[in-house]
Design a protein around this nucleic acid. Structure first.
Lengths: 174, 174
DNA sequence: ATCTGTGCAAATAGTTTGCAGCTGG
DNA sequence: CCAGCTGCAAACTATTTGCACAGAT
């Protein structure tokens, strides 16, 4: 589906398959619809965000819901280099892609409309219907190159931008 | 690195970082170099393949090796919709991409040279050095569409091609 | 009344890690 | 010789599942 859902249209679509619009599913949709563009949540993050608002939805329900919504084409499942999946509203015509450093996992988002065009072409050729396309470019960041990659990089080096980011996250948690 | 490694060039590159070329790492490189084009292995599959040849390499070592080789740009880490990572030799100039059905996980490989061009452009713009690029198109396969997706598809439907595939795999295991 | 959805707790699966001994450079 | 590497077992983490009960149609 290429247009954003309202609670009503989601309800209609779920019902047409014998499924239900529960308060939990509505809450979850709502969170994603109000997420700043380019932002994405893991199951755990979604759980905590709802918790902070006083909405308790169990982790199992979260996992079940995001999977269901992904299979319906409502959410987009991102596999970044972080060991767990992230989700965001699926809007193929506004998609961004990811450039990820294999050394430090630093991730940069970028847009490129021709990626969608190529994906659509291929999808139609095979008789499929497009839900989403994601280009993930893995690369070495300038800092790692400056550190001498590939010859002289220490085993557990991580780029300074990454360290700065982690410190910032730790501060936020406190 | 955009050219295939030999045992010697791998040794040189490892040594220059204070790392070593062990028999295990050489074996693993060897397996990937002799893998049919387009084929890829999970850690477990690599473990079993080596075991069948009488080469025992522990799973931990396998995991450590494929991660190391991925960070070096020697292997390409694929995240298909199968819940675990697959690896293949990283050859950006011969790369294929993936079209995956969200309903049944059926996966089709395709080539498209312009994807690499777009990736290179973006990578250079950010001052990164490209290791790999992967376009993953998620979509609905013709069979699921024929079954009435998105309105009338049963919850745990899986496409017949998928069922056929699983039966084939089960037979092979016996 | 039936069947889906939820929360809980337990199970799973893939992957990572601590450690003691081994080995390549 | 010594830092890195291996195999083992145990730990970990993200995710899934079985079950009993609640709630929607």
């Amino acid at each position: 589906m290429l247009t954003p859902y309202t609670a009503n249209s989601l309800k209609a679509e779920l019902n047409s398959r014998g499924w239900r619009l529960t308060p939990q599913r509505e809450q979850i949709l709502h969170v994603f619809q109000n997420l700043p563009r380019g932002d994405h949540l893991s199951a755990e993050e979604l759980f905590m965000l709802l918790e902070k608002r006083g909405e308790f939805i169990s982790l199992s329900t979260i996992y079940r819901s995001v999977k269901l919504m992904s299979r319906m084409g409502i959410l987009r499942e991102l596999e970044l280099a972080e060991g767990h999946k992230h989700y965001e509203l699926n809007q193929p015509y506004q998609h961004h892609h990811h450039l990820v450093c294999v050394q430090c996992n630093r991730t940069i988002e970028f847009k490129n409309d021709s990626i969608l065009k190529h994906s659509l072409k291929q999808t139609e050729k095979e008789g499929f219907q497009l839900i989403d396309c994601q280009l993930t470019v893995t690369a070495i960041c300038p800092e790692a190159i400056r550190m001498g990659w590939p010859s002289t990089l220490p085993t557990n080096w991580t780029c300074t931008r990454n360290i700065a980011l982690k410190e910032k996250q730790n501060q936020e948690e406190e």
